[in-house]
Design a protein around this nucleic acid. Structure first.
Lengths: 210, 210
DNA sequence: GGTTGTCCTGGTCGATTGTCCAAGTCAAGT
DNA sequence: ACTTGACTTGGACAATCGACCAGGACAACC
């Protein structure tokens, strides 16, 4: 067994916990299973983390960050008409979910666990705050790409984006119908396009017109 | 302890399991906790159910049926314009969820548990089949009340209704913002109204015109 | 080369879990 | 009254869990 500084060992254990929980569910992420996945002995976990809850909180933080990066990582930004931009963005978000079934299911397990166990109280709300913020950044991107603003409060739209993606993702996890999820999100994209309004002439846009 | 025929005892235990799981989460619904909630001794549970999974499956079936009855139970059916009918229907569905936080959270716990544990394999899909069917019946109601049909496949619309309600409900469970959920669902209602088209004259409608 | 402190090992403990069982209790039928 | 069968009781069991600990191993520094 390699000797590692405690900080690196923590990261390794967090990744091991993420692997176990994504593969077999959050209940399977026992201290023993995580230690085995990481290839270390049982005591190491309690040497690096005060207790199991601290490990789970760290894991939750890791998956939240990973989801955020994934969401904002590979968004297409080709300037076209509003509808196409929105469709492309939603398609990219959906592709990220479809290709990570285990972590996505784990996210929902973390949400419900957080709502039941006070030790994980902050996990769910942080998860959603991150997603709502990411959705607002997506709205920024659409605004800049398609030169539009919105006929509804941005916060409300961001919340809707997260809600709709969550809803279709959950259904897809249950029945595996990717096509239905795609179609549903495309329909939502068309709706989003209807609440986009041409942006007023602003400083930069005015400059490009001069 | 009263003596009861096994069938009635089963129902009582299912209700006890529902109470414990709704209040404290699905993990808290241990055989012992359920027995204590029902006021019976430990052995009774295994006298009435082969094992714990059978009890949980029965509980899941009960909550699915309850959700279905609740959804279709108190739908307003006053004939007005499409938008008002849809808004009223969504408001009724949302009210049912808002007033049953524990069971609603339990539903999501059951969904994720079902997706992880093969013993509960059928639970989630039955849950969703029920909800999709209920959503289609809601569409029926709107059609008859407002005399419209739809410019999209009914199945797709039903799936969207369930997805959107799921998504907003989940967010509401996390941050408790009822107003945001209401507003989001109202926005979805306005969208639904845009994909409703006036119904072609049919037999009964034609008769009422004669 | 000895010392110090970090990191790792593997066993052990008490608590909780699902499952099982031998015995007890009670109502109904003969 | 007595038997039969349905229902109940509460303890016992093995398995698994998080937590803890005494000690071994290793690298860095004096």
């Amino acid at each position: 067994m390699n000797r590692l500084p405690v900080a690196e060992r923590r990261e390794q254990l967090i990744e091991a916990a993420l692997a176990v929980a994504s593969r077999d569910g959050i209940d399977a992420a026992t201290v023993r299973a995580v230690a085995a996945e990481a290839g270390v002995s049982l005591g190491v976990v309690h040497y690096c983390f005060q207790d199991k809850d601290e490990l789970l909180r760290a894991m939750a933080h890791a998956i939240t960050s990973a989801n955020l990066e994934r969401s904002l990582g590979e968004l297409p930004a080709e300037a076209e008409d509003v509808e196409s931009v929105i469709e492309g963005v939603l398609e990219a978000l959906w592709a990220g979910i479809r290709d990570s079934r285990g972590p996505q299911l784990l996210s929902y397990e973390l949400t419900t666990s957080s709502l039941r166990h006070s030790e994980l109280n902050q996990v769910a709300i942080e998860q959603y705050r991150g997603q709502w913020a990411a959705a607002e950044q997506v709205l920024d991107l659409v605004e800049r790409s398609a030169h539009v603003s919105w006929s509804m409060p941005r916060g409300a739209i961001a919340r809707s984006i997260v809600a709709v993606i969550d809803g279709f993702s959950l259904a897809w996890l249950v029945d595996g119908d990717s096509e239905a999820a795609r179609n549903g999100l495309q329909g939502f994209g068309r709706y989003l396009a209807t609440i986009a309004v041409p942006a007023p002439i602003e400083a930069d846009a005015a400059a490009s017109l001069a």
